[in-house]
Write a protein that binds this DNA or RNA. Structure first.
Lengths: 346, 346
DNA sequence: TTGAAAGCGCTAACAA
DNA sequence: TTGTTAGCGCTTTCAA
């Protein structure tokens, strides 16, 4: 290996400034008991040599990395992007860097999470579906700072930032009922996830409270992805007596629904109303613009980042659970049921 | 899996396995000359103690961090997201982790870039507008691996992955001309950037080659953002003799154009055709679906990541410049000019 | 206010 | 095939 390593270390700076290298370290880490003239000389030397601190060494010696880990399933849906934006925004106000891990549904979350605890990161933000919760326990036992975003620790022992899924879904269904819909198709999310469960529960509760009976056929299983949304919508449209409105458990699957509706030669919202959940940026770009339940994703990210930093800098802080409100964003994908296309076909 | 304990080091593993700790190191770094029985004993001890390697220490000692830095302006446009997806996909096939830096237009790129060279990352991917190129020189001088994405080193001494901006723009304009448009508005990108320059050049060339005279009013300055797209479109629509088509230098500003057109009570494509550049995911979600020049962003990310890894693992590799083709994606936002709304108003 | 020195956990010569 | 031993660049006692 013939690399010329031109890297300047504090030793060089020390020599240049004519002080010991621990003094340089003190100046650089903002230690206060340094004579002003010394500090100045050191800073000058730093400048002159173009010295840049080596983070690795600093973290190894100091036990802190200045890095916050973010564990997400992948980058391929607006949902994660919004959360990441919020996190990034908050971190840019601090001195923490962001180390991004995508698990790509390979269920290696646990190993990533543990890797971060070993020096790589000072804390970790988890947006990962908790399919296996074992490592959460491990993080907790090791007293390693972490915050869950949009998911819940079944044991209620973790800091969490989420939103009122159940209530959001309740309001969405209420809205559809208010428009006059009685046959409402519902496409679930990935039912292993708490949020999916809660959205379904909110929907059912709204129906129940309105005295509308629940038909099993109208509840179709989805997984929060567009494709499943499409297919679940097909199943709904193929029913003997199809719904006049479809509530998809997130925007991505709502897009799939809209596609399916179009593929059936029907129109949103004239023939079928569609409502989503999340309000990712694309929701206001699709045609017709999607009516949906807004989850303040970016804010969830921001708050989670803030909680995490607090926890890192003050380890005794008790865990916190922050739940943000959702809100119904009414756009153009819903209307009162018209004379049904089904009737027309009869 | 047995319980994980943070403070387990290779020393503990060595003791547990009854070998020296360098032997443990050998086993863990996949060194081959280890007796099978020894390897087994070590691995067992690792398992039993729940040992996880400390990356910081490993990188400090080994001179490699296993991290690739990604420097981007921000996460708030589909463009970066697509590139990041490609990068992430490629990295997930390797053993590199991704450290994400967003500069938030604070022009601190240089310091981030240098920070990464000091142990934090083994190489860096830059998607940042090169407003100041000084640090690129520094990277190069230090022989630190880096690859530029969608931007060009004016000195031609860097590895680059980009696409045929000029030709893409040429084809887009040609397409509009083919539809019969003669008054085509053009909204530039941020003109400090090479890509913006090239797209304008392609547009002009197509006009010239078709013998269509260029009117200065029809070229409006934008900055690749939606808002400027909107405002530039307004300026075009306010012209005494407005265009029948608008070519925006990227999709984001094309969305702004569509909004402006709608705000003027006009319809895309009936009254005004709109064409974009990039083909970010949203382009096929807007209404009408946007006709645009596709840049294979995810592939650019993938290739850049691959080039970077090659360069890291084989420092003598010469720099490379990969230029990917663009392609016109015809959707629904363009049509032949109709009897103009302008005429109607007269 | 400063310097000396002991690590942080690991890799990689060099010996054995 | 394995052990010994320097460091990697920095932080942080402990003394002075």
């Amino acid at each position: 290996m013939s690399e010329i390593n031109t890297s300047v270390t504090i030793l060089d700076v020390a020599r240049e400034a004519g002080v010991s290298y621990s003094t340089v370290s003190r100046v650089l880490s903002g230690y206060n008991y340094v004579k002003d003239s010394t500090r100045e000389r050191v800073l000058e030397a730093v400048e002159r040599l173009g010295y840049v601190v080596n983070q690795q060494a600093r973290s190894l010696a100091g036990g802190k990395s200045g890095v916050i880990g973010l564990l997400v399933p992948g980058l391929d849906n607006g949902y994660i992007g919004e959360i990441a934006r919020g996190i990034d925004e908050e971190l840019s106000k601090s001195s923490y860097d962001l180390l991004l891990y995508t698990t790509h549904r390979t269920s290696t979350e646990a190993s990533y999470a543990l890797k971060m605890t070993k020096g790589l990161a000072d804390g970790v933000l988890l947006v990962v579906p908790l399919l296996t919760t074992g490592y959460i326990e491990t993080l907790r036992e090791q007293n390693f700072p972490y915050v869950l975003i949009d998911q819940v620790d079944p044991n209620n022992r973790s800091s969490v930032v989420d939103s009122l899924n159940r209530q959001g879904a309740y309001e969405a269904t209420q809205y559809l009922l208010g428009l006059g819909h009685r046959r409402i198709g519902f496409i679930t999310g990935l039912m292993k996830l708490r949020s999916a469960e809660e959205r379904l529960a909110g929907h059912m509760a709204a129906l129940r409270d309105a005295g509308v009976s629940v038909e099993e056929d109208l509840i179709q299983t989805g997984d929060f992805w567009r494709r499943e949304g499409y297919e679940a919508a097909e199943r709904l449209l193929n029913l003997h007596n199809p719904p006049t409105a479809i509530f998809a458990s997130n925007d991505l699957s709502a897009f799939g629904v809209m596609e399916a509706v179009r593929a059936y030669g029907l129109q949103v919202p004239h023939d079928i109303s569609v409502i989503g959940f999340d309000d990712i940026p694309q929701a206001s770009l699709v045609y017709p613009r999607l009516t949906t339940v807004r989850q303040p994703l970016d804010e969830m990210g921001r708050i989670a980042a803030r909680l995490l930093i607090e926890q890192i800098e003050n380890p005794d802080r008790p865990i916190r659970h922050v739940t943000l409100p959702t809100s119904l964003v009414i756009r153009e994908s819903c209307q009162s049921p018209q004379q049904s296309w089904l009737d027309l076909r009869r």
